[in-house]
């Protein structure tokens, strides 16, 4: 018979996905085709064998080990990851804007006052921020900074910021730990 044509649908027949009409046509072909019958028989044996592969079970300590891994992963990430994560919360974004503003104004202030920067050794950093240090990062700036709103020829002070802003990086999300451990 025209066995070749049926090679395309034998898989769907095997997985019982053929529409009724095609199924009947194929079954009538099967009556006369030993090759297709043998194929189906072999596939059935392979399926049975595959299903008899013993089910692997997760070990006893699976949950405990997973919990440990979750805790580890949730521990405070350092460096850029922490910063990026922190910037996704509104307080973080707000504080970042304020810090950027302070740095900008601060640098303008110092540039104006001191045109001759002190000579520094090559490779010497002006300041170091240690990610691991628990101390808050503090920025020194003038006594206060006015934030002005300009428009229509006049300007108005809308905010007066203190000279020092302390930025606290979130250390641990304690609520989370309480949640997970019990």
């Amino acid at each position: 018979m025209d066995c070749h044509r049926f090679k395309v649908i034998i898989g769907e027949y095997y997985d019982q996905r053929l529409p009724e009409k095609q199924r009947l046509i194929f079954e009538s072909h099967l009556l006369s085709c030993g090759e297709c019958r043998k194929t189906l028989q072999d596939w059935a044996e392979i399926s049975a064998l595959a299903k008899s592969i013993p089910m692997t079970k997760a070990p006893e300590h699976f949950e405990a080990a997973l919990q440990r891994r979750i805790m580890e992963a949730r521990r405070k990430p350092v460096g850029w990851t922490a910063l990026v994560q922190w910037l996704t919360v509104p307080q973080g974004r707000m504080a970042a804007w304020v810090v950027a503003l302070m740095v900008l104004i601060g640098s303008l202030f110092f540039l104006q006052r001191d045109n001759k920067p002190e000579p520094r050794l090559a490779g010497q950093a002006s300041h170091t921020i240690d990610n691991h240090a628990p101390e808050p990062v503090a920025l020194e700036a003038p006594d206060y900074v006015n934030v002005l709103l300009k428009g229509n020829g006049n300007e108005q002070v809308i905010m007066r910021l203190p000279s020092t802003i302390r930025v606290y990086m979130p250390d641990n999300d304690d609520s989370y730990y309480r949640n997970v451990s019990h």
Binding site: I53, M55, T56, K57, A58, F62, E63, L66
Partner: peptide, 15 residues
């Protein structure tokens, strides 16, 4: 979800 899927997922990856 862990209780439900830990065995099938372990088995799947193991195979």
């Amino acid at each position: 979800l862990v209780s439900k899927y830990k065995d099938p997922i372990t088995h799947y990856i193991h195979v």
